[in-house]
Design a protein around this nucleic acid. Structure first.
Length: 313
DNA sequence: GGTAGACCTGGACGC
DNA sequence: GCGTCCAGGTCTACC
């Protein structure tokens, strides 16, 4: 008999809409089930993996009266009291269940009716960092394959812990996970986290200045301007864009901008500057709306049907 | 500070 | 089936 946990989320939280707000939800070890509108994945608890299924019965993005219902977590196995608290904390971080999105809706009123504003992430900052590194300089299919390979390294299929990756040889990562030249960056980053020289609490400290945080992120191996920008939003800092080729495509096709790459970057920065501290989220939900125009609501996509065409992050 | 080239993989394409 | 080319950010060397 497994444990059953419950989280009381923010009043406008809607699992299908808020979980499926980031392509990371389609990467291993996450599995979004289109049929049951639930999220399955293993979580690491002090070295052992427990499988969880997260659901919010009755929640529908199209029915605001269904938002805010309790989020249920079904755990495959029994949990000690401290483990129950840990599971709830990891899921709450991942889904941002308590985030307030009013500030975003104040600057972008288009999002009010949809309730959108939460961008999901990983249960841990370390997983966010490695997933971001695997999203650089590769097409989405490559990122999917790399994360599947990384999770295959761990018993139970959980995302590997920093200590585990720190002990892995570069050749093993290349051969089994197809990470290519990112092998050294991933292992160096894992060593920083495993040794305590990179402290998640330091990066997650809300008192940290954006500039200081961005500079520290760029010092992580394999993290450049794009990756640092993406990690900023994963840390809840939305004042910077994470400009990649998809941003430039959006600038050309949706915003009608022209020019070479340098010119486009300047125009994109100028375009979103008026949204201040909410720059990234305004950009991201514009991009998401564009995808959904082509492919339908993102919560109707599934990890089982090819992971869709969504790009990073 | 700006630029060029290497890094690796998978997909597209031509033969 | 095989070879070639290309796309995707980061890093380093160089100007």
């Amino acid at each position: 008999m497994g444990a059953r946990l419950s989280i009381k989320p923010a009043a406008d939280f809607c699992l299908p809409r808020d979980a499926c707000s980031n392509g990371f939800m389609l990467l291993a070890p996450n599995r979004w089930s289109f049929g049951s509108q639930s999220l399955d994945r293993p979580l690491s608890l002090d070295g052992r993996a427990v499988r969880v299924r997260v659901s919010q019965p009755g929640a529908s993005p199209d029915d605001c009266s269904s938002w805010g219902a309790p989020v249920g977590i079904a755990v495959d196995g029994a949990l000690a009291r401290d483990e129950r608290a840990a599971v709830k904390q990891l899921i709450a971080r991942m889904l941002r269940v308590h985030d307030d999105v009013q500030g975003l809706h104040d600057v972008d009123t288009r999002l009010r009716a949809t309730g959108r504003g939460r961008i999901s992430r990983s249960p841990t900052f370390f997983e966010d960092v490695i997933k971001t590194i695997t999203s650089c300089n590769v097409q989405w299919g490559g990122t999917v394959a790399m994360n599947a390979g990384l999770c295959a390294l761990s018993a139970g299929g959980a995302f590997p812990a920093a200590a585990k990756l720190a002990r892995t040889r570069p050749a093993t990562l290349r051969a089994k996970c197809r990470v290519g030249y990112r092998d050294v960056s991933i292992i160096r980053t894992a060593k920083l986290f495993a040794s305590g020289n990179a402290d998640p609490a330091w990066f997650e400290d809300p008192a940290r200045e954006d500039d200081e945080l961005f500079a520290a992120l760029k010092r992580l191996p394999g993290v450049g301007p794009y990756a640092a920008g993406n990690l900023m939003q994963l840390l809840g800092r939305y004042s910077r864009l994470a400009i990649d080729t998809e941003t430039l495509r959006h600038a050309r096709t949706a915003l009608g901008m022209t020019g070479d790459e340098r010119a486009l970057r300047k125009k994109v920065e100028a375009h979103y500057e008026r949204f201040g501290a909410e720059r990234f989220r305004v950009y991201w939900f514009e991009l998401l709306a564009e995808y959904e125009t082509k492919h339908g609501p993102i919560w109707m996509w599934s990890s089982d049907n090819g992971a869709g065409d969504i790009t990073k992050p």
